[in-house]
């Protein structure tokens, strides 16, 4: 069965100016394809360009050179509105520090990405509750982030990413602030989501997570090497 290519990056480069004259090549000639239902783990030391690559692939930042096709459309040509639409409809994010909104309950955090959408509130609430149930968080739905453990907060963050049914989830160190057991729990959940068709790309330092990857990409000084699992 041939898998659809979700993201295709060609000759991707990103340079920054540091100080007056120093030029930093954060990404250098990156070529990458991400398929549906595929999980890629992105390894590299701090400053190797992992976060920059996530930003660029997800349309949060523009590359200096190269093209990125997202479901066939070159997003480097997109204007701000198109990029916002892309993030709203096709992309989900999971952050290292979860980044839940403190004043929202778990279920409201899950619903939050959909608030600007024209989805009836009762339908939205049903979807959010269903997701929380799938992630075994039903009894925490009306709890605030401060009342939940790190693992629970990360599961809420995952539910928030999933409510839009995105084509791709970008995760930046999703297990970085969790103990090993909870980290594996989150990875198993991500793997389940991935098997259901969502492509996932994860930036991490944790070599223990290799077992979940379909492919591993290593970044060093902005250059990419790829290894099959």
């Amino acid at each position: 069965m041939s898998m659809e290519v979700i993201i295709e990056a060609k000759n991707l480069g990103k340079t920054y100016k540091r100080g007056r004259s120093e030029v930093v090549h954060a990404l250098d000639d990156i070529n990458l394809k991400l398929y549906e239902a595929e999980m890629i783990l992105l390894y590299g030391p701090s400053g190797s360009g992992k976060s920059t690559l996530l930003n660029v692939l997800s349309g949060l930042d523009n590359p200096t050179t190269g093209t990125i096709k997202f479901s066939g459309d070159d997003i480097t040509e997109f204007n701000q509105k198109q990029l916002t639409d892309l993030r709203r409809n096709d992309v989900g994010f999971v952050f290292q520090a979860w980044e839940l909104i403190d004043n929202l309950t778990a279920v409201e955090n899950v619903e939050a990405p959909m608030y600007p959408e024209s989805v009836p509130s009762n339908v939205l609430r049903t979807d959010a509750i269903t997701l929380l149930r799938r992630l075994d968080l039903l009894d925490r739905e009306y709890h605030y982030p401060k009342e939940m453990s790190g693992g629970e907060q990360q599961r809420v963050a995952l539910a928030r990413a999933l409510i839009k049914r995105p084509k791709v989830i970008f995760a930046d160190e999703p297990t970085g602030n969790l103990d090993s057991e909870t980290g594996h729990l989150i990875m198993r959940l991500l793997k389940t989501v991935c098997r259901q068709g969502t492509a996932i790309i994860i930036a991490t330092h944790d070599e223990e997570l290799r077992e979940y990857a379909d492919r591993i990409i290593r970044l060093h000084d902005g250059k990419m090497t790829e290894e099959r699992v």
Binding site: L60, Q80, K81, T84, D85, R87, R88, N89, V91, F93, F95, E99, I101, A112, P113, Y115, P116, R160, K164
Partner: peptide, 15 residues
């Protein structure tokens, strides 16, 4: 940071 997160989640500047 919360504004950045909302934008990453697909909120427009207007929202």
């Amino acid at each position: 940071r919360e504004i950045a997160v909302l934008k990453a989640l697909g909120y427009s500047n207007g929202s």
